[in-house]
Computed example of a mutant assay.
Amino acid sequence: MIQSFIDDDNGLDSTVLKSDVWRQLGEYAKLIHSIQVKGFGENLIDPNNGEFQSPSHAGSDGSWQGYVQYNINSLTEYDRFINLGVITQMESQRVRKLFENLKKEPFRFGLNHGDISLKNTIVNQEGQVILLDWGSAEVSVVSHGDIIQVMQCQILGEGPNIDEFKAFLDGYGLSEKDLTDLKHLLLLRAFDKLRWAIDRSPNLIEPFAAFAKQVVDMIMV
Rank of each mutant, 00 (worst) to 15 (best):
M1I: 14
Q3E: 13
S4D: 13
I6Y: 12
D7R: 10
D9E: 13
D9H: 10
N10W: 06
N10L: 09
G11R: 04
L12K: 14
D13T: 13
D13K: 15
V16F: 09
K18I: 06
D20K: 12
L25F: 06
E27W: 04
E27A: 09
K30L: 07
I32C: 06
I35G: 09
K38C: 05
K38A: 07
F40K: 07
G41H: 10
G41M: 10
E42K: 14
P47K: 09
N49W: 11
E51Q: 15
F52W: 10
F52L: 05
D61S: 02
G62W: 03
W64G: 02
N73Y: 11
T76A: 09
Y78I: 13
F81N: 11
F81C: 08
N83I: 07
G85K: 05
V86D: 04
I87A: 02
M90R: 14
E91S: 00
S92W: 04
R94M: 11
R94D: 07
F99G: 08
L102P: 03
G110R: 04
L111F: 00
G114T: 00
T121E: 03
I122H: 02
N124E: 06
L131E: 02
L132Y: 00
D133W: 04
W134N: 10
G135K: 10
G135S: 12
S136M: 12
A137V: 14
S140R: 14
S140M: 10
V141M: 08
V142I: 15
D146S: 10
D146F: 09
I148P: 01
I148A: 07
I148G: 09
Q149L: 12
Q152V: 07
P160F: 05
F165T: 02
F165C: 00
K166W: 06
K166Q: 10
A167C: 05
L169M: 01
L169W: 03
D170A: 10
G171D: 03
Y172K: 02
G173K: 01
G173L: 01
G173M: 01
L174E: 00
K177A: 10
K177T: 12
D178P: 06
D178T: 04
T180Y: 15
D181P: 08
H184D: 15
L185P: 02
L186G: 05
L187V: 02
R189F: 05
A190M: 03
F191L: 11
R195L: 09
R195I: 07
I198S: 00
R200Q: 12
S201A: 12
P202N: 02
L204F: 11
E206L: 06
P207H: 03
F211W: 01
A212N: 03
A212M: 02
K213L: 02
I219Q: 08
I219L: 12
V221A: 12
V221G: 14
